[in-house]
Amino acid sequence: MQSLTPPPFKLNIKRGRKLPDASGIANYLARNDKISPLLPSIKRNASLQKECAAILPGVFDSCEVLQLADEQLSLAAPNASLASKLKQTLPKLLAQLQLRGWQINAIRIKVQVRKTIEKPSPVKQLVFTSSAINAFDALEHSLDDTPQNAELRAALHRLVQRNQV
């Protein structure tokens, strides 16, 4: 007997379309005389960032590797609270990085507060018609004046007051 269940979901992947090649970016960076000397340190910092995030996944999500110079690693934390939490885990981080082959003897933490962009308040999108406002008003007045209905009546009253034209 055949099953009546539908076939499993199939992805419709179009073949033949080429994805952008990252080697073009790497070639540009390698040819650019001003950027090419920075490429090894950028790669080193990126791999250090991955290593640190793997060692301390919960703590290191918001932190960054700033630089590695003279066997001293500089890390950036977004606030003092996270910096102190990171400071408590430094012995573990240092030991794990040394086990993974990094030539690091000291780790320094800098608090670097990032500039936060204030989110604009959301614009009111829902507009009630006058008949809807009248229906909410009628509902508020039709409810019994009991303690169980007090919060609902107050909410309906605020909704009607906010949406009066």
Rank of each mutant, 00 (worst) to 15 (best):
L90W: 03
R108A: 12
K110W: 14
G16V: 05
I117S: 14
L29R: 06
R153K: 11
P120A: 09
I55H: 02
S121T: 14
N163S: 12
E140M: 07
A135W: 07
I42C: 04
K115Q: 14
P120D: 08
N12L: 10
L159D: 07
Q164K: 10
K124Q: 14
L38S: 13
P20D: 07
Q112G: 05
E118C: 00
A132K: 01
K115N: 14
G24Y: 01
Q72K: 12
E51Y: 00
N79C: 15
A155Y: 10
L143F: 11
I35H: 03
N32E: 09
A69Y: 02
I13K: 08
K119Y: 05
R100D: 08
E118N: 11
A30D: 03
L38P: 01
R15V: 11
L4W: 04
A138F: 09
R15M: 14
P6E: 03
E151C: 09
P20R: 10
I13M: 08
L156A: 08
L93Y: 01
K43D: 04
Q88C: 10
D145Q: 10
A53E: 06
G58L: 15
E151Q: 13
F60W: 04
N45T: 00
K43R: 08
S131I: 05
Q2M: 13
S81E: 15
A83D: 04
R153N: 08
L143G: 12
L126T: 12
N32S: 11
D21M: 07
V59T: 13
S36R: 04
V59M: 14
A80M: 09
N12H: 10
K87R: 15
L99K: 14
A155C: 14
S3M: 06
I13V: 12
R15N: 11
L97T: 00
K34M: 04
K87I: 03
K124W: 09
S41A: 15
P122M: 05
I25Y: 00
T89G: 09
H157E: 09
Q164F: 06
I133P: 02
F9N: 07
L39Q: 02
N32F: 01
Y28Q: 05
A69F: 03
A46F: 13
K92I: 09
K50F: 14
R158E: 10
S84P: 03
P7A: 07
Q125W: 08
S47F: 10
G101T: 07
A46P: 02
A154E: 08
T5R: 09
P91E: 13
K18L: 14
S121F: 11
A132V: 04
A155V: 11
Q2S: 09
T5Q: 12
